[in-house]
Design a protein around this nucleic acid. Structure first.
Length: 565
RNA sequence: GCGCCCGUAGCUCAGGGGAUAGAGCAAUGGCCUUCUAAGCCAUUGGUCGUUGGUUCGAAUCCAACCGGGCGCGCCA
């Protein structure tokens, strides 16, 4: 942490073998012990001595200057009592000085990133399982942009394939299909294909026409997939997900680049035509150790291409854009598939994107299934959240205009939905609980927003704000103030780690911690009615800094905080 | 069967090898003439799936097993 760097330097100065990086800083388990703790395990290992001995030595000898009031060794830890006011001044000045970019490490400055996410099949309104992809992808995008990357977001439109073909067929019969009817139609089309062989064959035929690029087929497909995509994007836009490029699968059929891939595979003797006349890759020739997943089919016997074959061309087109970071966000069910793709792409000399996986959101009744219509739609989830939020806002904010209240209700609804999904580690299966996800109290997005509203309320009542402090001490020495300051100061390292690990879940937990610490401060330390004017002024600055940190962190989650709620 | 992911309080989840494992929900009891009660305080609640191993130290790392999820040749 930058804030404590001088302390690390003072400790490292004691031993020529040590560097400031050998020291880390942690919260002591109890405030009475100190304001910040330094574990001596790492340093002791380097010096081949016992941690408690080293901590005791450091307590005795280290020269921290005036900013450390007391240094006490407790076992392997060195606990420091700080000149809180001095650190408070540093922290608050840094936050208010950096403003909207506070928390960024600028690790992506001058770099580009490409991310493909969401890429839902155009066959139905998105359900909350798919929303996990969109929300993680969207938040990662925000995180990378915050870190300075220039990011382009790609959405792959799977406007081909048998199931879409069936939907197109049925749409032809139904006429004037609307987006709201698409899920039903999709389920119906799949049911019918199971029973009606002729219908199923028609689907394949239509697909073949599409692949050959027959204009009539293309037009029919496009009408249905555009209808669906636009409907899906409207829902996704509501939760704040935005895309820069829409790449259509149908544009990657018979791509010339695939010839080069085949050549490379032939050179490694890794591709063959099997007994059923299919074109198949033998991944064991490319180093795959397991029999499972050894074969990867590129083309059917009738010469039509498989999804995975077209996808190779698409991924190459993404790689050719030359981004410094190339991310591909996928459900865990695509893990083997992505590994197979990567092996082929590597063999062909293109390299593969970095993959990020997330696990399924399950229902109490089991896995969601679009084909079976067993889903919780994101739009239904949002509608319910918005309805509940509107009721609350109507109770709390009757002096606001209807329009203002509607805006707040929507912000709260989006916050509840996004937060409930984003706060959970992506590799964890979750069982979706509508009631719990619609809660606005406790560990929720609205709880954090509520903290922001309280801060805004204080700032509003205070009136015209003083200029931000530029260094110098601030009289913020209460335990609750220090705990809040320490958490605010921890934001950059938290953000840096999240960006590095491509994981946004810890941001949600950080924001909860910060909101809880603010609430403790709010109850323990009156701001407007503090004992003297300088304390009032200092606490106002702390409120501003807290609001800035909360706003920035919430922004990474795609959540806006209303000024009132 | 083989591979990947997960297993922490009744429920949903946090916990980058380190001090006495933390939140929320649910339950019980308190707190609104005091900066927003979408809040706060208190109480109750744990063999960190099991068994071994590595380590001065393991919820965290390794192995095996048990339980759940996902995947494994003409779906996308």
């Amino acid at each position: 942490m930058e804030t404590f760097k001088p302390l690390a330097e003072a400790l490292a100065a004691l031993y020529p073998e040590l560097e400031p990086g050998d020291f880390s800083f942690a919260d002591p388990p109890k405030v009475e012990l100190g304001d910040v703790a330094v574990p001596f395990f790492m340093a002791a290992k380097k010096l081949k001595t016992a941690p408690p001995k080293l901590a005791a030595e450091a307590a005795e000898r280290a020269d921290f200057g005036g900013r450390v009031l007391q240094a006490t060794a407790t076992g392997p830890y060195l606990n420091l009592k700080l000149d809180r006011a001095a650190f408070a001044g540093d922290i608050v000045s840094a936050v208010l000085g950096e403003g909207a970019s506070y928390g960024s490490n600028r690790s992506g400055a001058g770099k580009t990133a490409l991310i493909e996410h969401t890429s839902i099949n155009p066959n139905a309104s998105p359900h909350v399982g798919r929303a996990r992809n969109a929300l993680i992808g969207d938040s990662l995008t925000r995180l990378l942009r915050f870190e300075g990357y220039e990011v382009e977001v790609h959405y792959y439109v799977n406007d081909m394939g048998r199931q879409i073909g069936l939907l197109v067929l049925l749409a032809d019969e139904l006429k004037d299909l609307t987006f709201d009817q698409i899920l039903d139609a999709y389920v119906q089309a799949n049911e019918r294909a199971k029973e009606d062989e002729a219908f199923a064959q028609q689907g394949y035929a239509l697909l073949a026409d599409m692949e050959e690029g027959k204009p009539e087929a293309k037009e029919k497909f496009r009408a249905v997939t555009d209808l669906c995509l636009n409907g899906q994007l409207a829902v996704l836009a509501r939760i704040g997900a935005q895309y820069d490029y829409f790449d259509h699968e149908s544009d990657f059929v018979r791509d010339a680049r695939l010839e080069k891939v085949l050549e490379a595979l032939r050179a490694r003797d890794a591709v063959f035509t099997d007994e059923d006349e299919r074109l198949v890759v033998d991944l064991s020739k490319l180093g795959r150790e397991y029999e499972e997943g050894r074969y990867f089919v590129l083309m059917r016997a009738n010469g039509s291409s498989m999804y995975g074959y077209r996808d190779i061309a698409y991924t190459i087109s993404k790689m050719e854009r030359g981004a410094d970071v190339n991310l591909w966000l996928l459900g865990e069910d695509h893990k083997l598939y992505a590994e197979q793709q990567a092996m082929i792409l590597d063999a062909a000399g293109y390299g593969a994107p970095e993959t990020i996986y997330y696990s399924y959101i399950l229902l109490k009744s089991g896995k969601m299934s679009t084909r079976q219509g067993k889903v919780v739609l994101l739009s239904d989830f949002l509608d319910q959240a918005a309805e509940l939020a509107a009721e609350r806002v109507a109770e709390q904010c009757h002096d606001l205009t209807e329009e203002e209240r509607a805006t707040i209700a929507e912000q709260v609804a989006v916050s509840a939905v996004r937060f409930s999904i984003l706060r959970i580690s992506p590799n964890k299966n979750v069982t979706f609980d509508m009631e719990q996800s619609l809660s606005f109290s406790g560990d929720t997005g609205p709880y954090v927003q509520y903290s922001c509203a309280r801060i805004n309320s204080i700032l509003r009542k205070y009136g015209e704000l003083p200029p931000a402090p530029e260094g110098g001490a601030l009289p913020l020495t209460h335990d609750a103030e220090w705990a809040l300051l320490a958490k605010i100061a921890a934001m950059p390292s938290m953000v840096g780690l999240c960006a590095e690990q491509r994981n946004i879940a810890p941001i949600a937990n950080y924001v909860l911690d910060l909101a809880r610490l603010f609430t403790t401060f709010y109850h323990d330390c009156p701001v407007l009615k503090a004992e003297d004017a300088s304390t009032v002024a200092a606490r106002i600055q702390l409120c501003r800094a807290t609001l800035q940190a909360l706003t920035n962190a919430l922004g990474l989650l795609g959540i806006e905080a209303p000024e009132r709620m």
